[in-house]
Every structure is written in C-alpha cells, then in structure tokens.
Amino acid sequence: MNNLFNYIDRPSPIHRLTGATKFVCLMLWSAAAMSTYDTRFLAILGAASLVMFKVSRIKYKDVSFLLSFTFVFLIMNNILVYLFSPLHGCEIYNSTTYLLPYTGHFAPTAEQLFYHLNYFLKYLATIPIVLLFVCTTNPSEFASSLNKIGVKYSVAYSVSLALRYIPDVQRQYHEISQASQARGIEMSRKTNIVNRLKSASTILIPLILTSMDRIEVISNAMELRGFGKRDKRTWYMAHPFRRPDIVCMIVCAILVVIAIALNIINGSRFYNPFMQI
C-alpha cells in the first residue's frame, strides 16, 4: 500500500517494541555510528545490526530491492572520494604507506584503503538498522511515536498526513502526466534543461493546484472534526512502554556514551592503527 514504509508484519521481538522505542533507538544508534570512525566500534555495531536483522525475521529478499540502491550509492560515493582526494586517508592518519612501487597522485595507499574500509563500515553499521526500522514499524504508529517522544502533536500529525497522502499524490502525478500527453504535450527527454523544466511544470501546475484545493478541503474536514481543540490528543495506535522498550533505549544510549568515550581516548574521531607502526 505504501512505498515508503515497507512494513512486513511478522511476529518478532523487534516488531513488539513500540514505534517510539524503535525511533529513539534508531536515532541513538545513528548518532553513535555517526560520531566516531573507530574501526573496532563500527565493526561491532555492524555485526550487531546484522544479528538483529536475523532476530526480526526479515529476509534478504524483502529488502534486496532497497539494498541495490544503497549499493550503487555507496560505490559511487567511494569512487568520487577517491577521485577527488586519493590522499584523504593519508591526511587523516598522518602517514603514507604506498602499496605499489608507483607513487603518483592516484597511487593506492594503505591509509586511503583503510579510510574507505571505515567509510564502508559506517554504512554497514547504520543501513541494516534503518531497513529494520522501515520493515518493522507500522507507519500508522510512527506519528504517535513522534508525539510520544516529545514532538508536538501538530507536527507529528503532519508526518502522518504526509504518509497518508504519498500514494495518492503518486497516483495523481501519473494520471495527470498521461492526461496532458493525451492533449498533445511533449514529454521527450531529448531537449535542454529549460524545456525539460517547462514540460515538467505542465504536470506540476495541475498537481500543485489540486493539492492546494486539497489542503483546503482536508483542513476543513479536520477542523470540523475538532483537530487542534485541545493541547494534547490521544492516538488510536499508541502503545505503552514495557520493559524490553526501556532496556533497548538504555542500551542504545550506552552506545552513544561509548562512542564519545572512544573519541576522547583516541584523541580524534579516527582509530589510527598506523601510529603504532
């Protein structure tokens, strides 16, 4: 029904956590993985996230489509980094170890490859967790989770509205584009940017204008049903926290503390194996 959350309903301990817990854990985990480049820590996070993936009973084929995007993105970024700064690793680790006799600008160095390994690990530590969140969180519960962790309910509800209307907008985009082709508008890809933008806007304008009408109708409908009447609201899909929820959040909070501690111990965000040599 919804292309965004790829919710797969299979009973597992992870599915049973509340959406709020999963969201907090996702944020804490990402913060931990983002704040440090300590290779050992990232490797542990990566391994742990793969284990959790198993626990959640989500299968590789459920997410292979998403993973292919990620993979392309990752490769592209690695190549770009290498092309622009083949010596980025040497600057970071403050040493240069050529791996080949050739020592020109693009010569591979152990430091550069190690940097790329870290770059890769950073993704390994975060991607499975994001996928896990996407696959095990009921989108309906997402908005209430945001409200639960302190986001104002009005903002949380706009997230819910966005999720509600994404499939509608998508279908409408498709239909409008067909209708305008039927009336003779060329959508060819072979023209320059300005023309491409112009033909894109013959779809965009009706799409946006209907959306503006829709904004009016929806806000009327919501107001007629008492939205915004009080300072708080309840949520049909909300669940109370239970013990596993608390435990998970504490564990993830500890991870952040460890990450920060490692940065202090290492003296920088990088774990530098080349210094000891």
Partner: peptide, 12 residues
C-alpha cells in the same frame, strides 16, 4: 490547521 495540512501535503 492549514499550516499543518500544508506541511503534510507539501512533504508528500
């Protein structure tokens, strides 16, 4: 309410 709805639809 209108701002909230505009945010939601805008994000979509």
């Amino acid at each position: 309410v209108k701002t909230i709805v505009a945010t939601g639809i805008g994000a979509a």
